[in-house]
Design a protein around this nucleic acid. Structure first.
Length: 817
RNA sequence: GCCCAGGUGGCGGAACAGGUAGACGCAGACGACUUAAAAUCGUCCGGCUUUGGCCGUGCCGGUUCGAGUCCGGCCCUGGGCACCA
């Protein structure tokens, strides 16, 4: 055996072995339970970054662990290949997005192979391949016919200088990132998917997704934002028109002191003609980006309209204001304001000197004070006509009933979730398969004309998608009337591709259909792994899409991902690695210097997967050092010849202690890797084991047998994490089949048994000593031993013992006063 | 602004069901080996201290025999906010 650990050589050999044996090629096999382990596929930016390495190492560790447990594992990989960066690169370097993307894919594929990830490459796919996106187009036309697709207007960021639509990230402080021009909001027609039709199912099914982090389920619940309330209308004095508003707090109806209109509301637009203050608000609303974070942090401003609304129950006149915090996108673009019981309304009322009228008092009878802020809890009504004295919940129902009875309102469920706008005015995306005909309107592209292929040999300028000025692309004939017509030139949101790739991996070679029965064999994904930043959008869209696929009869499960692991970010110097901060670490350099196993080991050791990971160069060296030591331990052991067979009955005390450590490590690592996903503590346990093995120095037959068992355990446990070195060491330890096919070790219960236990002794909850007792000692014996301890006696000497708390196997606490 | 997380030694982290705070690793100090350095191996490594202890898990308060862990309030950092992926 080589005297030195040479990762380069060992890793090349292992990778060649796996490739030659087609180790990771997955076949459907009903004789073994399937396990579909999927890491979120990358955007092919050109090089792997540490976030990818972390994500894919976690996935590979889980996959290899499950394989050792006897599962038939599928672990595929592909490319989320459409998107904005390719267009930016094209502008900078003059390379068409398609060529740039395919070069990046080739480079990153090699990097992934160099890291030793066990993917079934025969299933590789790229979303920019027409054979992939054609099925997305096919499904879209189907959903159109089903009524799940519709056209409506939506706001985009318009750069008036570059004459182009900008993404939110391209709007910096209200200005276009390249031109520096003030960005305008423009309403343009776009395609929408009715995700809100599935809102209730998406919400309710979260309760059963117990393999998902509660944090993510919570974020999705809040995003969907189901609320029950009342929709009611206020007459406008002197106008033949009504304001319809939605409120979740009809119990505060008597506290309404003003109405708020969105600046984009038709009435606001009308009044802006003759009112400079309103015109200014409308102007403000038209400029700047569309991102919610920008809108929500704007200073709250408003202007009186002079109009008055009529309170539906009291007939009182209520002033109508235009307010910039009222959003046209939500509900009707109008709100009733109750400053006493809503903080945002309170702030606006305070700023503009509008009355604050409390009508709900705390249920506990405590004094109500709204001088410093709104009281937004439920309580008991006051000054609310016939409803005074009712608790909020009863008043909610009573007021709703009254409004319904008078035909002025009705109970309604509202969602925060909006329908999914899938149109993008970009080039590098899947063409939306629709044709606009002057005679027939919007017509879906017939199946036999799919895919609508995106022309790839194009030049990208800073303003607008090239296919919008390419008659050879958009000129066509109407499939219905045969007349001249134009293709849709918008492309799909890239979330469309990433919403179903997990199913396509099951049957990536199927060219006659979107999916086949193999999709149902492999899905749902048993374990999905990816960044927490995808907690809402990608994961919600994919859930929606899966339900749509189900309703189309393409899969039969309800949810795409049974278990979800959201991995934290990779940081350096406490902040996110990024090119602009210049604090990136190139995984490729590390692999070349230390080997893939060291990079994998450090990444898994430095932090548990869900936490952020602080990068440390010296920590990487520590990981490398450990692998050298493990290599050395096996080398020295093997150099002494084959180890004799182990006879557990014939061990001395030290040998039994060491063997107990071996099996404790197996038990801990199995729990850490299999159940808790805390790979860092599993590695720490193996390090402890190796420290103990290294100190043993026992050359007796029994000692060498225990050593063999211990080294095998260490290699088996580390095999999913550092697969190349373990592949090598396993053969060195005398095995003839590869460790990748070995069974995961099981702890021997007999080896775990202890004769004695050490109890912690406390007095009044503070540590005062230790006592060693037989493992089966009862409370009486423990108490006797504890009180005999001299240090304990010092602390209880002049006190009365009130009680003794005994926790078997752990501690005994003497409470004395 | 809204929603969701996280704050533990010089650093990354451990403590899994409320029971020894700091496992494991990094950095550092000292020692061994060496002509020397690197590598390797060994010992020490939260603060204070009268050496008996006392203090210590972002801050303030509470529950408990016992709180890093549970509860209430605050501060700071990070993720998401619908066209980055």
């Amino acid at each position: 055996m080589d005297n030195q650990y040479r990762p380069k050589q060992i890793e090349a050999e292992a990778q060649a072995y796996w490739e030659e044996q087609q180790t990771f090629r997955a076949q459907e096999d009903n004789g073994r339970p399937k396990y579909y382990c999927l890491s979120m596929f990358p955007y092919p930016s050109g090089r792997l970054h540490m976030g990818h390495v972390r994500n894919y190492t976690i996935g590979d560790v889980v996959s290899r662990y499950k394989r050792m447990q006897g599962y038939n594992v599928l672990q595929p990989m592909g490319w989320d290949a459409f998107g904005l960066p390719a267009e930016n690169a094209a502008m900078e370097r003059g390379v068409p997005p398609a060529a740039w993307t395919r070069e990046n894919i080739a480079a990153m594929r090699e990097q992934l192979k160099g890291l030793g990830f066990g993917y079934d490459w025969s299933r590789e796919l790229a979303t920019c391949d027409p054979e992939y996106y054609r099925w997305e187009q096919w499904l879209f036309t189907r959903l159109y016919r089903k009524g799940l697709v519709y056209r409506d207007t939506a706001a985009v960021n318009w750069d008036p200088v570059d004459q182009t639509v900008l993404a939110n990230e391209q709007v910096i402080e209200g200005r276009g990132w390249r031109s520096g021009a003030l960005v305008e909001r423009r309403e343009i027609p776009q395609w929408f998917l009715r995700i809100t039709d599935y809102a209730d199912e998406l919400l309710e099914a979260l309760d059963a997704l117990d393999g998902w982090p509660e944090q993510v389920r919570n974020m999705q619940r809040n995003w969907i934002g189901r609320s029950e309330g009342v929709e009611l209308s206020f007459d406008l004095a002197g106008r033949d028109e009504q304001l319809t508003v939605f409120t979740t707090r009809p119990d505060t109806l008597y506290g309404v002191t003003y109405m708020g209109l969105a600046p984009e509301h038709p009435i606001s637009l009308e009044l802006a003609e003759g009112n400079p203050a309103i015109a200014e608000l409308v102007e403000e609303a038209r400029s700047g980006g569309t991102a919610e974070a920008d809108l929500a942090t704007r200073e709250k401003r408003g202007a009186a309209t002079g109009l008055e609304a009529v309170h539906p129950l009291t007939g009182e006149r209520i002033p109508v204001w235009v307010a910039n915090f009222v959003l046209m996108e939500y509900g009707s673009g109008a709100v009733m304001a109750v400053p006493a019981h809503d903080q945002r309304d309170w702030e606006f009322a305070t700023a503009y000197g509008l009355p604050i009228r409390p009508v709900v008092h705390p249920a506990d009878g405590s004094e109500l004070d709204v001088s410093a802020g709104a009281f937004s809890d439920y309580g008991v009504l006051a000054d609310s006509g016939p409803f005074s004295g009712m608790p909020s919940d009863r008043a909610f129902a009573a007021i709703a009933e009254r409004l319904e009875g008078e035909g002025r309102g009705q109970r309604r469920v509202q969602y925060r979730l909006r329908d999914w706008g899938v149109s993008r005015q970009r080039y590098w995306g899947a063409p939306i398969p629709m044709i606009h005909c002057a005679e027939c309107g919007a017509v879906p592209v017939p199946d036999d004309q799919l895919p609508v292929t995106l022309p790839e040999d194009v030049a990208i300028s800073g303003s607008g998608s090239p296919i919008k000025s390419m008659p050879s692309f958009y000129e066509t004939t109407c499939p219905e009337c045969g007349g001249a017509a134009e293709r849709e030139t918008d492309t799909f949101d890239t979330f469309m591709e990433s919403s179903w790739y997990f199913a396509r991996f099951a049957c990536a070679d199927q060219n006659g259909a979107m999916l086949d029965e193999r999709a149902d064999h492999w899905t749902p994904v048993d374990q999905y792994i990816g960044g927490i930043e995808h907690a809402v959008l990608h994961l919600l869209y994919a859930r929606f899409y899966h339900k749509v696929l189900r309703d189309e009869g393409l899969v039969s499960s309800n949810e795409p991902f049974t278990r979800l692991l959201t991995q934290g970010m990779v940081l350096k110097d406490g902040t996110k690695m990024s090119k602009s901060k210049g604090n990136t670490v190139d995984p490729q350099e590390l692999v070349e210097r230390f080997g893939a196993d060291t990079v994998r080991l450090f990444t898994m050791f430095a932090a548990p997967p869900e936490q952020s990971l602080e990068w440390s160069d010296s920590g990487v060296e520590g990981a490398s050092r450990f692998l050298r030591r493990l290599h050395g331990l096996v080398r020295d052991h093997v150099a002494r010849g084959p180890a004799p067979a182990l006879d557990p009955q014939a061990l001395g005390d030290a040998q039994r202690d060491l063997r107990r450590k071996v099996h404790e490590t197996i038990a801990k690592a199995s729990d850490d890797i299999g159940k808790r996903f805390t790979f860092n503590t599993a590695i720490a346990a193996v390090m402890e084991l190796c420290n103990a093995l290294g100190k043993a120095g026992d050359d007796s037959d029994a000692g060498r047998a225990v050593m063999q068992e211990g080294l095998e355990a260490a290699v088996l446990i580390l095999a999913p994490i550092t697969p190349h070195l373990c592949h090598h060491l396993w053969f060195q330890l005398g095995h003839t089949t590869p460790v990748v096919d070995a069974a995961w070790p099981e702890a021997d219960e007999q080896a775990l048994v202890r004769d004695e236990v050490e109890l912690v002794v406390q007095v009044n909850g503070k540590l005062r000593g230790h006592v060693t007792l037989p493992a089966d000692a009862d409370e009486g014996q423990a108490r006797e031993a504890a009180l005999a301890e001299p240090n304990v006696q010092r602390f209880v000497a002049d006190k009365e013992i009130k009680k003794v708390v005994f926790v078997a196997g752990k501690l005994i606490n003497v409470v004395a006063k």
